[in-house]
Simulated assay, not measured.
Amino acid sequence: MDAFHLLDANSKGWITSPELYDALQELGHHAHKELVFMFVRHFDRDNDGKLLYSDFCDAFSPKSNQQSVILGQRRAYFIHNHYHRLDFFSYETRDLFFRLFKLYFQHEETAELLRNSLQRRPYFNIHDAFAACDADKNGMISREELRELMIEYGIHLTELELTLLIDRYDKNHDGRISYSEFMDELMPRSAHHAR
């Protein structure tokens, strides 16, 4: 909660990509507006252009259930002790927090380059790609289908890697990837491609 409040300057419980961009600038961390937009779009579960506190938790909580529970139970120290938001956290903690943001932005930039490359390939079709992954043709890609597909192509994922891959696509967190979630992940996300 402290980390979210550091960015949510007006304590609304949500932030837009321009607000996140401004907050990062204010805190001395410069990012390209397009990458901030793509970050918000990726974690904005209901696609309303707002990163809710719950969306933020999805982005910054550990994937390990045990670690996530421990972090979720921590009380908001800086808010409850009335610190000014610009004084939250030690230098080392702030540095780690913003380094994670930087990694997210780099990851989104790489993913966007790949999405754009796929769109330029004349024979690539999202529907066909989804159909190739949906082995049982039920309109959803399960964890097991994804695992089998990766093995078929010589990619052996650990359980954590498989979880992270599914989380990348599975916006509603039901453990399966729908066609719309699949399409949303593979379509370019930059602002000039946004719906």
Rank of each mutant, 00 (worst) to 15 (best):
S68H: 06
L35E: 12
H84T: 15
I141A: 01
T110D: 11
E185I: 10
L27M: 15
H192G: 11
R121M: 15
L162Y: 01
T110N: 15
S61P: 11
K63P: 08
H127T: 07
A132W: 12
T158I: 01
L7V: 02
R115V: 09
L157W: 00
F60G: 00
H173T: 12
L71C: 03
Y91P: 15
C133G: 14
G72K: 10
L52T: 10
S117A: 14
L164E: 02
Q73F: 00
E185C: 05
A129M: 04
L52V: 08
F101Y: 11
F182H: 06
G139L: 06
E185Y: 03
D2F: 03
K137A: 15
L52E: 10
I15A: 02
S190I: 11
L103E: 11
P188E: 12
Q73T: 13
L96D: 03
F101N: 07
G72R: 05
L157H: 08
T110P: 05
H80N: 03
Y179I: 03
N10T: 06
S117V: 09
L35M: 12
P188G: 06
P62A: 10
A111G: 03
H127D: 12
E145V: 06
Y153T: 11
K12M: 13
F37G: 01
L86H: 14
G175C: 02
H5I: 08
L20V: 01
L35S: 07
C133D: 09
R121L: 13
Y153C: 08
D48A: 02
D170V: 02
Y83P: 01
D22N: 13
H192N: 02
F78K: 15
E26S: 07
H42Y: 07
R94K: 05
R94C: 04
L7N: 07
R45S: 02
P62L: 07
F39G: 08
F56V: 05
D46W: 00
G154N: 03
E152C: 15
G72S: 11
S17R: 12
D184N: 15
Q119W: 00
V69G: 08
S61R: 14
Y153E: 02
R85L: 03
R75M: 02
M1V: 14
D174N: 05
I166A: 11
S17K: 04
F39W: 02
L103V: 12
F182P: 09
L100R: 04
F39E: 08
D170M: 05
C57Q: 08
N125L: 13
F78M: 07
A111Q: 11
L186G: 08
S61W: 14
F105R: 03
S54A: 12
R85A: 00
E144G: 10
D8W: 05
Y153I: 00
H84L: 14
